[in-house]
Amino acid sequence: MLEQIAEQVPLFFGYYNVVFILQAAGRTLGMTFVGCSVGFVFGFLIAVLRQSSLPILFLPRLLGIAYVETFRRIPFLVILYIVLFVIEPLMPGTSLFGIATVSVCLLSTAFLSEIIRSGLESVPLPQIEGAKALNMTGLQSLFMVILPQSWKVILPPAAAFVVMFIKDTSLASQLGVIEMTFAGEMLVNRGFSPVLGFGAVLVCYFAMSWPLSRLAIRLEKRLEAS
């Protein structure tokens, strides 16, 4: 078995394969970062909505809570299938990459909203009362007092979440998105040894996720100290 692998190595690391794998890695990172950025924006809106106490916002608030609680309890794989089969007939021609990215957005909105919410809630009540007593409006106290103090509680788990999603996008291979994992499968199907194909993919994932998780840990330690 080892001989066979050793034989394949020069062929495996040929120019076209390397470019193929790098492109796939680009798609993995693309899905993750586009999905998580959009998720951060919507998650932030839902988190703020949940903090507000305005009576007019009661219904949107309820919908926000329902959304977050539902999507955090459905497997990513199932969300991928649902999004695929909803979007395909509605908007034929949408790329599989687009469909997978939309799925990431849906899920990351729910999770990031929870992370942001617990960050906002970490700001002590006296800070908020101080803002109220000075006649700040809800939005003023959010942007001038609460957010500047909560980002250090939000960033470390948010970074850890992005790391998680780099890995979870591997499930998009089931739709046929040529991201890292599917690239590995294709190489194996072309006759390369699974050890080589999936091993290389594993190493690539590690190279993408490890620096980011180191960053998350460092961030957490630094912010904890300050």
Binding site: S173, G184, S193, P194, V195, F198, Y205
Partner: peptide
């Protein structure tokens, strides 16, 4: 570090397809 930084799916692929070799 190894297991938290790589996808479970690929780990299982390795177990399922590479071990038979």
């Amino acid at each position: 570090t190894l297991f938290t930084n790589t996808p479970a799916l690929v780990q299982i692929y390795l177990l399922y397809y590479a071990l038979p070799d």
